[in-house]
Design a protein around this nucleic acid. Structure first.
Length: 555
RNA sequence: GGACCCGUAGCCUAGCAUGGAUAAGGCGGCAGCCUCCUAAGCUGCAGAUCGCGGGUUCAAAUCCCGCCGGGUCCGCCA
């Protein structure tokens, strides 16, 4: 609804309706700073100009209640009809509230894509959570979205893992990704000081790329084992990919050869020592990019280019979520695609999650696994739920699970992707304020009121905008912004904006909750507030779903 | 050495794209609030020269330049 109000404001502003100068502030529902900009150009006073602009307005909007000019700001306020329509739309549309029809397009979101050589750690899940949340938000906007995990099955570290797997076997009693990483870490230590093993790794990689049966069988076995464990972890976080795309597929299906041919046709390649190299100086880079070694094998970037050619043929838009260590290669990839007259991917880079003692490393076994984190957060949540006496054991563990997953997902998604994070156990295990538990709790409170209303035989809802007090008005304005925030995430690829919005909405609901009784007031006021409570319940629930967090009804 | 990202109260963050009306939350600290819809909640107090220095502007946390601190990248690795 806020989107409608906003476009009404732009319409009323007419020639002055420049989106860049619209602001949401504490002083008004929307204000325009256009007068300041024009004042500069025309050498006049902003306040004078603002007055003049306002005087030209034809006041014919269904949603705008008041327009005023204050010190150069042009302030717009919604009217009661807007509030009423907002609440009614929420109650009508229910789980669909917040959706809208964005431009029809097929979007691919690639995220997580961690090397299948061990368990996901807390750095990887930052990627998963950003990617999965974006996918959910894109879907809410009516976009046809698919998510893919790009499986890096051709890497050196996988070859090492394969040799380790063959040599030491794996412990079948352990979670498969955990068992795999033990073989990897152990083997890696041996490879580091053995030229013979180094040769063996190289040969295995060559044979896998050539598609030799024994190698394919071995790689597939190892990679699938790791992926099995990884998928299980992701599922615990409410993350599920639509597809797993193996890098080797592009070597086998001809896309690698096709992309090389395209590079040749564009005269972007040069040959040195029998190796094929993209001349990156022309694209403004210092170093060139090798796409084929002199032994004829391809490199990571070659297959990634092939993957993006494939994306071009199947999707209108592709978003990759990548760690900031991929910044250079990611930008090179974008520029190469553009030079080929192909669509480049949009990339969300996120900064690293480090431990207080330094950065993580799978290879050295120095990491906090996602599983360990989930387990510990669950235990902590369970401790708190145990205090409740009115819940069954089953309810308690379901609540603890929902709170744990929510706490994790929220902690990661609320931070802007470009901020480096240092992992802190005490913060990860804290469920007060600014955590998803706060939002879930607000939702549970709303559910509780509605349950009581039904039980006492007074479930009728009827929103009356003229009864709105300041807190209620503020709350409805926040509720109206749902799809507007979804749209902003779409434009900026910053899911933290939505996380913040939902927290603010929950906070406004709690503010209302503690100040005003709902069930113990006269019928008219009760029905009015009950409508508002139901609307909040819907918005909080829909919002939590967008964040991949379960909206539990009791906690 | 070069490139990119981050630097906002003791701590964690929002705001920076598109410069404007008192820099917004939370944690921790202090003082309060449950005979009343779930206290995983609410209220109040204390706490910030927005890393430092310059510049642009009527106006800078926001834009530009320089510096400092932290991170990342610069392989015929992935």
């Amino acid at each position: 609804m806020f989107r409608k109000f906003r476009s009404e404001v732009l319409r009323i502003l007419g020639n002055y309706g420049d989106e860049r100068f619209l602001r949401e502030t504490a002083h008004a529902d929307i204000c325009s700073t256009i007068a300041f900009k024009l004042a500069k150009k025309e050498g006049r006073k902003p306040s004078e100009l603002a007055n003049e602009i306002v005087s030209t307005f034809k006041f014919d909007s269904d949603y705008i209640g008041k327009i005023e000019s204050v010190n150069g700001y042009i302030n717009f306020y919604t009217n009661q009809e807007f509030l009423e329509e907002t609440v009614n739309a929420i109650l009508d549309e229910d789980e669909n509230y917040g959706s809208f029809d964005a431009e029809k397009q097929r979007v691919l979101i690639e995220h997580t894509s961690a090397n299948p050589d061990g368990p996901l750690h807390i750095g990887h899940i930052r990627n998963s959570i950003i990617g999965d949340t974006l996918a959910r938000i894109f879907r809410k906007a009516g976009i046809d979205v698919r998510t893919q995990y790009y499986v890096n099955d051709m890497g050196r570290q996988i070859a090492i893992t394969c040799i380790g797997y063959k040599k030491f076997g794996v412990d079948r009693n352990k979670k498969p990704d955990r068992a795999i990483v033990e073989a990897y870490i152990k083997m890696n230590r041996e490879v580091e000081n053995s030229a013979n093993l180094e040769k063996e790794v190289e040969k295995l990689m060559l044979d896998y790329e050539a598609g030799k049966d024994y190698a394919v069988k071995l790689f597939e076995e190892v990679v699938n084992l790791a992926l099995e464990g990884i998928k299980e972890t992701l599922l615990r976080l409410n993350v599920k990919h639509d597809e797993y795309v193996w890098e080797s597929m592009f070597v086998r299906n001809g896309y690698v050869e096709r992309i090389i041919k395209m590079l040749e046709e564009r005269e972007m390649l040069k040959e040195e020592d029998g190796a094929l190299i993209i001349d990156m100086k022309k694209l403004g880079y210092e170093k060139d990019v090798v796409v084929k070694r002199k032994n004829g094998t391809t490199l990571y970037v070659t297959r990634d280019l092939a993957y993006h050619l494939w994306k071009n043929e199947n999707y209108d838009k592709f978003v990759n979520v990548l760690g900031s260590d991929h910044k250079l290669i990611g930008r090179q990839l974008q520029d190469i695609m553009t030079a080929l007259r192909l669509k480049p991917p949009e990339i969300v880079f996120f900064e690293f999650v480090s431990l207080p003692e330094g950065s993580m490393s799978t290879r050295r076994g120095k990491f906090v696994s996602a599983d360990e984190l989930i387990d510990r957060v669950y235990e902590e949540a369970k401790k708190i739920v145990e205090k409740r006496e009115d819940l069954t054991e089953k309810e308690k563990s379901e609540i603890a699970r929902a709170v744990a997953v929510g706490a994790l997902r929220y902690d990661f998604v609320r931070i802007a992707p470009e901020k480096p994070m240092t992992f802190d156990w005490s913060k990860a295990l804290d469920f007060e304020r600014q955590s998803s538990a706060y939002i879930q709790y607000s939702h549970a409170r709303a559910c509780s009121i509605l349950r009581k209303a039904v039980r006492s035989g007074k479930p009728e809802v009827e929103f009356s905008p003229e009864l709105c007090n300041a807190e209620e008005r503020k709350l409805v304005m926040l509720l109206s912004k749902f799809s507007w925030i979804v749209e902003r995430v779409l434009r900026t690829l910053r899911p933290n904006i939505f996380a913040e919005y939902l927290m603010e909405t929950a906070s406004a609901f709690n503010d209302f909750y503690t100040k005003y009784p709902v069930l113990k007031v006269d019928a008219e006021l009760r029905m009015h507030r009950l409508a508002l409570v139901d609307a909040c319940r819907i918005v909080l629930r829909n919002g939590l779903n967008l964040l991949g967090i379960d909206a539990i009804e009791k906690m």
